[in-house]
Write a protein that binds this DNA or RNA. Structure first.
Lengths: 352, 352
DNA sequence: TCCCCTTTTTGAAACGTTTCAAATTTCTCA
DNA sequence: TGAGAAATTTGAAACGTTTCAAAAAGGGGA
């Protein structure tokens, strides 16, 4: 690591000034073709590689995009949802030659930290915030401070750019499926954390659909989870321990459904025979459970893709829109969802 | 982003020199307590945040560790294995206040690229290489160039530091389980890519175990996959299409087993009734399939953890060893594996 | 040969920080 | 009160690159 060959070395040996060497290497048309060739030759010979940090320093930009997720690394790397997000983002950044910086919080309670790490350092040219609570004040500081930032989720405030899915319609459709196709007149719900707008909106969609059929959600039929497998497990345990357990449950995401199925299994029950289940996300896991999950598909990868693309637009001026259906008011982009019918709801249909 | 307050501003207003301001902010004991207080006050007032890039530039270090994985982002983010690796690494880096940079290749064939991105930029203080082929020349350049690097996998060359698991023993145990507990006298194998030492070594373990019981692997009973779900699917299709299909298969990782189960299902067959399956990894998925997979557990998170810890040792001098069983000759660290018996092999045991 | 125009090269400044030898101030004690 | 020591502050260099005004070199026509 010591004494790397620097531009100065190249220049000296090539017998030109540092400025010229720099321009030669950066294909600046100002330099004579002969000179460039010589410089490039020497550079190759000396195995010169530009010092990226110095470059960033002088250009005052980092070539890095940070994804801020106010959860622990353990949470983030065990939820398949984030894999999809990362994948979508990476695809875009690769195209632009940018680097991805995943910023998590050391402790689940420590919301501050993930933001501060970025904010304090100014170590990214732009930020994508994913899975923030609607109440998360820190998240909004980015935008207020004029940092280029895109939110993933339903953040509809003025002055904020966001990319989300139609949680409401998805939940509505899921609920109606259980009511209209399978004839249930009572539904339970295992929700995500209700200070997250995704969880809140899915609950709203459920309630609205129930109401459309003159039905209600019993307070004891609602369990607020946190999108983790564990929460689904506990939630389902609770529900089946009720005096009169519900026969159909809408679960806020697939991972919780996995936990719920586990709870059913341990109680000697099974879906859809004893309890019909519909959930949300359609991550890879959803096809693997038994029964495979009927679930509302959201275009997770596209969310990441889109967020990154919008951010890069802001940073560079380019434009590229994806292929999923989406609506936008210029600031808030919303993708559509669709119900994927498998077997956990009682349907006997296909498997993918 | 323009005109951020800089150290110069703070110094000027505080009425001290830039040097003093710098020392005050970095809690250098040389500066007078009074002075420090004043500087810190002004800094807070001006909302001064140090320019991280400038710091890195002057210190000539990046505070970043790169994980180089010579596969596409899509491959990486869809394999649960890497989640575990990331998780383990992140835990350590968080402790040291380092940043993680995940470096993938734009195309599967483009082995070079992932390395070059790092190498060309010198954009990381150290590197962890995961899932490289044993034949991958690029990987070794890091080490040769004196870059601090740790390999995850069985790279036993002199002068290379690596962290791996005992693939051989794991495969041996899995094979013996099928032979001794379930009485099979013929086994098939769906392997990973054989230019990867993990796949090669698992095959060796299988062969050795077979030989110990005077058994052989028929050439037609070996399918070389690439650790993807798709490969498991195709491999199993092939095997059950044989005139005399095998009744027991050792599959190189869990993800391929998922594909294999899918193939069985489509053919109207099931495990373990028609084909017994034992696989490798014990990722989260393994518990979810039906039947749940009997599989060789490897401590994936600990691999990442350990690799990062060793790398940080090299960079800083600290020492911390984990809790899993591991052997080491100072350069090559090897974790033990253990067979987790579930139901895909024909056992009727527990579920976790 | 001289002048002007074009092409190419040079040299220095700038980016924001840390470091450290030298300068300055403050303190201690005879 | 003054000398020497200790504590504190200063100022400039250094990190490696890009940029750009100014200088130099080259070329063409009168």
């Amino acid at each position: 690591m010591k004494g790397r060959t620097t531009l100065k070395d190249v220049a000296k040996i090539a017998g030109v000034s540092i400025g010229t060497a720099s321009m030669a290497i950066n294909h600046n048309p100002l330099v004579n073709e002969e000179t460039r060739k010589k410089v490039l030759e020497i550079a190759a010979e000396l195995e010169y590689v530009p010092n990226e940090i110095a470059r960033r320093f002088q250009a005052q930009r980092t070539n890095t995009i940070a994804v801020v997720i106010p959860h622990t690394a353990s949470h983030v790397f065990s939820h398949p949802y984030f894999n999809g997000i990362f994948l979508g983002i990476t695809e875009v950044l690769e195209k632009y030659g940018m680097t991805l910086n995943i910023s998590t919080s050391p402790a689940e309670t420590d919301e501050q930290s993930a933001y501060q790490k970025i904010l304090q350092n100014r170590a990214a040219d732009g930020v994508i915030v994913a899975s923030a609570a609607a109440t998360d004040k820190n998240a909004f500081r980015f935008a207020q401070l004029g940092y280029p930032v895109v939110f993933i989720g339903d953040f509809l405030e003025e002055g904020i750019t966001s990319v989300g899915v139609d949680d409401y319609a998805g939940a509505f459709e899921a609920t109606e499926h259980l009511i209209k196709v399978h004839g249930f007149s009572r539904l339970a719900h295992i929700s995500g954390p209700l200070e997250h707008s995704s969880a809140r909106t899915r609950l709203d969609g459920l309630l609205e659909a129930l109401q459309a059929h003159q039905l209600e959600l019993l307070p004891s039929d609602l369990y607020e989870g946190d999108y983790s497998q564990e929460a689904g497990y506990v939630g389902m345990k609770r529900l089946i321990a009720l005096d009169d357990p519900p026969r159909a449950v809408f679960i806020g995401n697939d991972l919780m459904s996995v936990g719920a199925l586990q709870a059913l299994g341990e109680a000697g029950l099974s879906a859809p025979k004893d309890v019909a289940i519909v959930s949300f996300d359609d991550v890879h896991l959803a096809q693997l459970t038994s029964p495979p999950l009927t679930t509302v598909r959201q275009p997770i990868k596209e969310l990441g893709h889109s967020a990154a693309e919008i951010l890069m637009e802001r940073l560079t001026g380019d434009v590229d829109t994806g292929s999923w259906q989406r609506t936008t008011d210029g600031q808030h982009h919303k993708f559509e969802t669709k119900l994927v019918v498998r077997r956990s709801c009682g349907c006997t249909g296909g498997d993918s």
